[in-house]
Design a protein around this nucleic acid. Sequence first.
DNA 1: TATGAATGAGCCTTCATTCAT
DNA 2: GATGAATGAAGGCTCATTCAT
Lengths: 237, 237, 237, 237
Amino acid sequence: MSPATAADSQSAALGTGDTSRPTSPPRDPLTERGRRTREALLVAARTVFEGKGYPDTRISDIANEAGVAHGTVYTYFEDKAAVFQSVVYELTDQLDREWRIGQDLGDPVARIAEANRRYFDSYSRHSRLLAVVEQVGTTEPKYRKLLADFRQRYVERAVAGIGRLQRDGVVDSSLDPYLAGSALCAMVEGFGRQWLVRGERHDPQVVSDTLTRLWASALGLPTAIPQPEVAITRSTQ
Amino acid sequence: MSPATAADSQSAALGTGDTSRPTSPPRDPLTERGRRTREALLVAARTVFEGKGYPDTRISDIANEAGVAHGTVYTYFEDKAAVFQSVVYELTDQLDREWRIGQDLGDPVARIAEANRRYFDSYSRHSRLLAVVEQVGTTEPKYRKLLADFRQRYVERAVAGIGRLQRDGVVDSSLDPYLAGSALCAMVEGFGRQWLVRGERHDPQVVSDTLTRLWASALGLPTAIPQPEVAITRSTQ
Amino acid sequence: MSPATAADSQSAALGTGDTSRPTSPPRDPLTERGRRTREALLVAARTVFEGKGYPDTRISDIANEAGVAHGTVYTYFEDKAAVFQSVVYELTDQLDREWRIGQDLGDPVARIAEANRRYFDSYSRHSRLLAVVEQVGTTEPKYRKLLADFRQRYVERAVAGIGRLQRDGVVDSSLDPYLAGSALCAMVEGFGRQWLVRGERHDPQVVSDTLTRLWASALGLPTAIPQPEVAITRSTQ
Amino acid sequence: MSPATAADSQSAALGTGDTSRPTSPPRDPLTERGRRTREALLVAARTVFEGKGYPDTRISDIANEAGVAHGTVYTYFEDKAAVFQSVVYELTDQLDREWRIGQDLGDPVARIAEANRRYFDSYSRHSRLLAVVEQVGTTEPKYRKLLADFRQRYVERAVAGIGRLQRDGVVDSSLDPYLAGSALCAMVEGFGRQWLVRGERHDPQVVSDTLTRLWASALGLPTAIPQPEVAITRSTQ
DNA sequence: TATGAATGAGCCTTCATTCAT
DNA sequence: GATGAATGAAGGCTCATTCAT
C-alpha cells in the first residue's frame, strides 16, 4: 500500500563504505524529447494510478500506458514512490491554480453557491486521483497531511465566512463557527463523493441549488426558495 | 446465525463465485480448539488490516498477531481474500446488530439527534476497518457495493424522515428529499471522518448539538438553541 | 562487488511510518529438516562463491547447487550478503579450530617447520574461499579487517618467536622483529598462494624443507641442510 | 608504439577472440579531440576501477569521471570489458617500461637491494590496479595468465641470480633455486602488499635494509649489518 | 489441527548497450 | 564525435500458497 514500503523494506545488511548513488539520479530531461517522455509518463501514471490504485499499479503498467520500456521510467524517476509523488505534486499544482482565482461576490448566498460550484467543478476533475492519495495517506503520513492541509484551507474559508456573518449579526453567534464550517464543508465534500465518484446521477443545477439552500438554511440565512421552473428533472439514485 | 457461519456462507475468492476446492478445503472448525483458533485469527486479521490496510497485510502478519504458524491460516481460510471477507462479514453483522435496535422518539429534532448520536457511536468503533473496506472497494466492486448498500439504508431513513416532515407540512415540499437526505447524511459522515478518523478533537456534546442544529435548521425546523450549560468546553480544531 | 551494495543502493524515497520487518526475519531452523537445508545451503554457497566469486554468484546458483528453490534461501538468510557472511563465519570458526591446537616443539627450526606445515595444511583447504573474502574485502572494510586480524595473529606468533630468539642471543638483535616476522610470514603466504592457488606443482617435502631453511637462514639460525634422500623430484614450474 | 595502439591491437571482448563488428566499431580516434577524449576515458577508467573494482564500476561512472556522456564510451570501446582491457594494456606498457631499464650492479647484495627498491617503487604506483586485475583474473584466465607471466619474469631474474651465485659457489647448491627464488620474491611481494596496499606504516629505508638482509641471509650470503645511523624510526605496526 | 519448510510467480530495480539526433 | 534517451536482459527479494510431518 504505502509508496515507501519497498524502499524501507531493505535492511542494512552490512556496513559499507560505498556512498555513491547506484545510478546517476534521475534528472530533469535535457532535451525536448525527454521532456515529452517525462510528461507522457506522468500522464500515464496518473491514469494507471486512478484506475488501479497505488499498490496494484506496476511500473510496467505505467510504462506500457506511456508506450515506453519499463526501464525508461527509471530515467525520470527514482522509483515507484517518486513517480507517485510527482503525480501528486502535479495535482496540487493544478488544485492551487484552480483555487487561486478570486471569488468575491456580493451576497452571502451567492458566495456559497459559487464556492460549491467551484468545489464540484474542481473535485469532479480530480476525485479519482484524490481517492488514491487518500488510500496512500492511510499508510503515508506525508500524503495524509497533504490532504489535511488542503481541506484545512477549504474549511477555513467557510469558517471565515461564517465568522463574518456572525459579526454582522446575520448568523447566530452561539453557533460554533469552526464546527459549523467543517460540517458544512463535509456535506459538500461527502455529497460530491457520492455524486461524482460513486456515480449517483443528479441534475447539476438541482444539486447546486439544494446544497446551497441547505447550507444557507443551516446557518439561518433566509433563502429565496429557487423556483424549479427549468429543472424538472427529479434526481434519481 | 454465528458470524462464522455468515462468513463461510459466502463464496471465498474476492470478486468470484468460485466454489471449487482444489485441496483440503477450509471447513467449519469441528473442535473447540479449532473454533478458538479461528476466532483468534479473525480478531488478529481485523487488527492487522486496520493497521496496515489490505495490500500491506501479509498472511504471516495475521498469523503472528494470532500467535500461530502462518500455515495455520490456510486451515481456516481459502486465501487472503477469504480472510478479509470473513472479517468484513463479521463487521456487517455487528453493524446490523447495532442498527437494528429501535429508535422511535417523539419530536423530529430529538430523532435527528438520536440518529446522529448512534451514527457516531457506531462509526467510532468501526471507522478504521470501514476505511479499509473502502480502500478495497476501489478495486473490488463487491465491497464497493456492500458499502453503498449500507449507506443506502442509512440515507433512506433520513429521506423517509424528511418525506414525512414534508407530508406533515413542516418541511418545505420544494426541497428534493433524496438530495437533502443524502447531503445531510454526508455532512454527518464527513464530519465523523474528520473527527473520529483524522483525529480532530471536539467535545462530543457540542458536536452533537451543533450537527443536530445544522441538520434541523437546514430543513427549516425551528431549533431550540441548545444551552451549553454543562459543556462549556469550546471545541478546538 | 561488495555484498552490501544491493541493500545500500536503496534510497529513502519517502518517510514512512512502516517499521515492521518486511517478512519474518530468517531464524535458526526449528526442525531437523530445516537444519539440514540450512547446512546444505551453506555448503552450496561456499562451493559457488569459491567457483565464481561473490559478484558473479547468483542466489539461484546457490539454490540450484543446494537443490532447493531460490526462495528457500531467504528462509534462512536475509539476503545475499548475509549468506556470504555466514559462509565466512563458518570459515573463521574452522580456522580458529585448526589453529587452536598447541604446537610447542623443541628447537626453533622444528617449530618453524611445524608452523609452516600447519599453515600450508590449513591454507590449502581454504585458499579459494579466502581469495573471495579478499576480493570482497576490497570493497567491504569489514572483511578487509577480518583478514587483517587473522594475519595479525599469525604474524604475531612469528614476531614473538623472533623476539624470543633475540633475547636468547640466537638472533641478532639489530633485526627489526616485526618487519622480519611480517616479511617471513609474507614469504610463506605468498609462496603458498603460488603453490596452492595458482597451481604451481611442487613436492610438499621439498617445499617445506626449503621454506624452513630459508626462514631459519634469514634469521641467521644454523640449519642442518636437509638431505634430499627421498625427494629427488625437482620442483617444476 | 603508443599505449592506445597496444590496447587496440588486442581483441576486444574479455576472454574471447571475437572480431566481428556488429555496429559501427570503435576505431582509433582520427581527430585530436577524439584522441583527448579517449585518453581522458582511460585515465578515468583506471581511477574508477581502482576505486570500486571491476564489477562495481559502471560505464556511467567512468563517463562521469571523464566528464562525458555515457554513450561516448562506446565511441571508443566495444564494451566494458574492452575498456578494462585497454586500461590493463596501458598498465603493462608502463610496467614493461619501468622494468626495462638496466640494473647491473656489482655485488650480489647491492643487486638484491636495488631489485627490491625497484619492485616497491613500481608496485606502489600500480598496486591498486594490480589488485583489480587479480580480482578479474579470478574469473578471467586471460588476466590470471597476464599476471602470472609478469610474476614469472620477475621470479626468473631472482632464480637466475641465485643460480649464478650457486655456480659461483657462494650459495649452497643443495638449495632449489626455483623454490628459493619464488619464495623470496613472494616475501617481497607479500610484504609490499601489507605495506603499500593495506597501509602498514614503515620507514622505507628500514624496510629496504631489512628485506635485503633477510633475502641475503636466507641464501647464506654474508651481510654487512646495516647501521641504522640515520633511520632511527622504529617501524610500527 | 498445527507447524514451518519449500515453492515459484511476480515485481522492482539496475545498468550495459543501442540508437536517433 | 558527442549526447542522452530508450531498451530489455538479468537478478534480487517478497510473500501467497502448498505440503510433508
